[in-house]
C-alpha cells in the first residue's frame, strides 16, 4: 500500500511524510475503542430503563394514570398512588435549590471576584469541595442529631407567632421537611458553587476591564456585568444541583419523616420518590415491588425532564449570544 502519493520516501528524510501503517492501525483501533466504550454505557442505560420499565408493567396495568394523582399507598388493598411523593420530591428539591443555589452562587462570587486573597480563596474552595466527599448517611445522622434539635425551638416559635402563614402551619415534632431541605441544600452546595465558580472564571479578563473601565463599583461590575455574562454556566450549575436534589435518597429517607401527605408547611413530615423506594423496597411483596418500579419510572421521567429543560434553556441562551 502506498501511504503517501506525494513522496517516495517513508519518513526519516526530513520531508513531510504520511502517518505510518502502525499509526493508521492505532488510529482505527482507537476509534473503535471509543465507539465501544460509548456503546456499552448507552446500552447499559437503555437496559436499566428497560428492566425497570418491564418490572413496572403490572403496576401500570393495575393503577393506570391514576397512579400519578392518587395519594393512597395501601399494600393490603393493592391501591397505589404517588402524588404526595411527587409533591414532596419537587417541593423539597425546589426549596433546597433556592437555599443551596443562593449560597452556592454567592460563594462563587465571593471566591472569584477579588474579595479574597488568592491563597485564602484556595483553602476555602477546598473546604467547600470537601462537603461533596461526605457520605449521605453521615449527612443524615448529622441532620438527626444536630439539625433537628437546633431547629425545633425556632420552628415552634415560628409556628406560635406566624402559624397563620401556611409555611409555618405545623409544629416540628421530629423529622420533617425543614431539616431535610437544609441538609439537602448543603449537599448540593459544592456542585452549585464549583460549577458557578468555573462559569465566573471563564469570563475573559477583557470583560472585567470593560466593566471597571466604564467606572462601575465592584458591586455594579458583578451584578450588571459578571452575573449576566456567567448566566449560562450558573443556570447549568442550578440544573445539575436540582438534579442531584431530586435523586438524593439516604439522607432524605432519614430526615424527611416519610409521611404520605401533601402540605405546604415546612415543619410537617413529607415523603419523596427516592425515600419511598428506599424505605419500602426491603419488605415489599411482588405487587408492591411493581408499584415501586412504576414510581422509579416517574422519578426517571422527572430527572430526565429537568435535565432536558436545563439543556434546552442553556442551548437557547447560547444561541442568543452567538459570536
Amino acid at each position: 500500500m502506498k501511504l503517501d502519493p506525494f513522496c517516495a520516501e517513508q519518513g526519516g528524510s526530513g520531508e513531510p511524510c504520511a502517518p505510518s501503517f502502525l499509526e493508521i492501525l492505532c488510529d482505527r483501533g482507537f476509534r473503535w475503542l471509543t465507539f465501544a466504550a460509548g456503546g456499552i454505557v448507552i446500552s447499559l442505560g437503555l437496559y436499566i430503563i428497560f428492566e425497570i420499565g418491564s418490572a413496572a408493567v403490572p403496576a401500570m396495568k393495575d393503577n393506570g394514570l391514576g397512579f400519578f394523582v392518587s395519594t393512597t399507598w395501601d399494600v393490603a388493598r393493592n391501591e397505589f398512588g404517588i402524588l404526595a411523593e411527587i409533591w414532596g420530591t419537587l417541593y423539597s428539591s425546589l426549596l433546597a435549590l433556592l437555599l443551596g443555589g443562593f449560597f452556592g452562587v454567592s460563594i462563587a462570587i465571593f471566591f472569584t471576584q477579588g474579595y479574597l486573597n488568592h491563597r485564602v480563596a484556595q483553602v476555602f474552595r477546598s473546604i467547600i469541595q470537601l462537603l461533596a466527599a461526605i457520605p449521605s448517611v453521615v449527612y443524615g445522622l448529622w441532620g438527626i442529631y444536630v439539625v433537628i434539635p437546633a431547629l425545633r425551638p425556632v420552628a415552634s416559635w415560628l409556628n406560635e407567632h406566624f402559624g397563620f402563614i401556611p409555611f409555618f402551619g405545623t409544629k416540628l415534632s421530629g423529622p420533617g421537611l425543614a431539616p431535610a431541605v437544609i441538609v439537602l441544600a448543603i449537599m448540593i452546595l459544592p456542585t452549585v458553587a464549583a460549577i458557578s465558580q468555573d462559569a465566573f472564571k471563564q469570563i475573559p479578563y477583557k470583560v472585567k476591564e470593560a466593566a471597571y473601565g466604564m467606572g462601575t463599583t465592584r458591586r455594579e461590575a458583578i451584578m450588571l456585568v459578571m452575573l449576566p455574562t456567567a448566566a449560562n454556566g450558573i443556570m447549568g450549575a442550578l440544573v445539575l444541583g436540582f438534579g442531584r436534589a431530586l435523586g438524593e435518597t439516604m439522607a432524605l429517607a432519614m430526615l424527611i419523616g416519610n409521611a404520605n401527605q401533601i402540605s405546604l408547611s415546612l415543619f410537617s413530615p413529607a415523603k419523596t420518590l427516592a425515600s419511598l423506594l428506599a424505605s419500602n423496597f426491603p419488605e415489599a411483596g411482588a405487587v408492591e415491588v411493581s408499584a415501586l418500579m412504576y414510581a422509579a419510572v416517574a422519578l426517571l421521567i422527572i430527572t430526565v425532564g429537568v435535565n432536558a429543560l436545563g439543556a434546552f434553556i442553556m442551548s437557547r441562551s447560547k444561541r442568543q449570544e452567538a459570536i
Partner: peptide, 27 residues
C-alpha cells in the same frame, strides 16, 4: 470609580458586554 466615569476607555480588543446593543450603550 469616579475618575473612570470622567475619563472613559476603549480597549485593544473589542469587549462589548453579553447584552443587547441598546443595553451596552445605555450601560
Amino acid at each position: 470609580v469616579v475618575v473612570r466615569r470622567h475619563i472613559g476607555m476603549v480597549f485593544q480588543q473589542p469587549n462589548p458586554f453579553a447584552m443587547s446593543i441598546y443595553d451596552n450603550v445605555a450601560f
